[in-house]
């Protein structure tokens, strides 16, 4: 790293505090007069005080974040079950295998569907609730507090809470349907292939709806009232005022809500694991990418009980590359949209 020095306001004052290199007072040319021969490392510290601040985080981050990530990329080129010495170098074979594996594509498709479902719900239900909440009454705060509540509840608790709703034996939804005369709709919500993934959408939405509502609400509160009133004066009806004034100004909130959901859902594990287990019951219909990687790494997948760590790592690397690339593109595309409007 090139050692270009300090801050623009580098006045020499700050050096007095922490080093034994002193500047002769009154000399402005930057000629320091060392009282003793400065220790080379001390010199480095005093010239670059920011190093002091960044180093602790860098060290921790390098050991427990950057190194393991690099190590993951390295291991993805080997054939290794995870125990014993690392196996043979196999090049891109793990990637080739996973890209031609139906289970991988099944899980990837389910993750994509889950994202799409949440995306749609966020831009209809959550946005609608945010519009409703965008006025100040005594009850607004109460409603907002309740709607946001599931965001702070753990995924484990959420999953178990919804098992009580959906379970075929002790579940609540089936008896309720029966009691209101809709008994024909009763089913094993989580065991019916046509409904299993939909229940995952529902529960995921239950947990994260509040986040989208609050982010959209923050966006709405940035829309100046005068602008809306001006539009109304110009003869725009409520819908047109929303479409032409409010909606464009929601672009930043839309970007945040979408990118956040994207990252959260493609990395998701806890909630879906609690709801439908390690194999995406029934029969892989709710298998998502985060659960698939776990199963392949530790050998709890239905396909094979053999742990295949390096193969699972290759799946993780693929997911990482996809997430980094796609969220970069998303931010860029959505940012452009914002510029086009401005």
């Amino acid at each position: 790293m090139p050692h270009t020095s300090g801050q623009p306001t580098d006045s020499g004052k700050e050096r007095n505090g922490s080093t034994d290199t002193f500047r002769a007072p009154g000399i402005s040319g930057g000629e320091s007069v060392p009282l003793a021969v400065p220790h080379p490392t001390r010199h480095l510290w005093s010239r670059h005080p920011w190093l002091w601040f960044i180093l602790p985080a860098i060290i921790g981050y390098a050991i427990l974040f950057i190194y393991p990530t690099a190590r993951a990329f390295y291991l993805s080129f080997f054939d290794w079950s995870g125990v014993g010495p690392i196996g043979d170098f196999v090049g891109l074979k793990n990637f080739q295998r996973l890209l031609t594996n139906d289970r991988f594509w099944n899980a990837a498709t389910n993750s994509a569907k889950l994202f799409l479902a949440i995306f749609i719900l966020q831009n209809t239900v959550s946005l609608g609730l945010a519009l409703l909440l965008n006025r100040k009454t005594r009850m607004t705060h109460v409603y907002r507090t309740i709607i946001f509540l599931p965001v702070v509840i753990s995924a484990v608790a959420t999953g178990i809470i919804w098992v009580l709703m959906l379970d075929p034996q002790i579940g609540v939804i089936n008896p309720v349907l029966e009691d209101i005369g809709l008994g024909s709709l009763k089913r094993g919500w989580q065991s019916d292939p046509a409904w299993a993934m939909k229940t995952v959408y529902l529960v995921q939405f239950w947990q994260w709806n509040g986040m989208a509502v609050v982010l959209y609400l923050a966006g709405l509160q940035n829309v100046p009232d005068e602008l809306l009133q001006a539009a109304r004066v110009d003869g725009a009806n409520r819908f047109r005022a929303f479409r032409d004034v409010t909606f464009p100004m929601l672009a930043p909130a839309f970007t945040i809500v979408t990118v956040l959901a994207f990252i959260l859902i493609f990395r998701a594990f806890d909630l879906v694991y609690v709801l439908t287990g390690p194999q995406g019951a029934p029969g892989g219909y709710t298998h998502i990418i985060g659960v698939l990687i776990y199963g392949d790494a530790f050998g709890t997948s239905g396909f094979s009980t053999q742990p295949r760590l390096s193969y699972a790592i290759a799946e993780g690397v693929t997911l990482f590359v996809f997430l980094a690339g796609a969220s970069g593109l998303l931010i860029k595309a959505l940012g452009k949209r914002k510029e086009a409007i401005a």
């Binding site: 190590r71 993951a72 990252i263 990395r267 776990y294 760590l309 790592i313 993780g316 997430l323 980094a324």
Partner: peptide
């Protein structure tokens, strides 16, 4: 960017080498 980029690293990936 190096620090903030950590946000898109899936935990599933990094936990395996760890």
């Amino acid at each position: 960017l190096l620090f903030i980029g950590g946000l898109v690293v899936p935990v599933q990936l990094i936990i395996l080498p760890l």
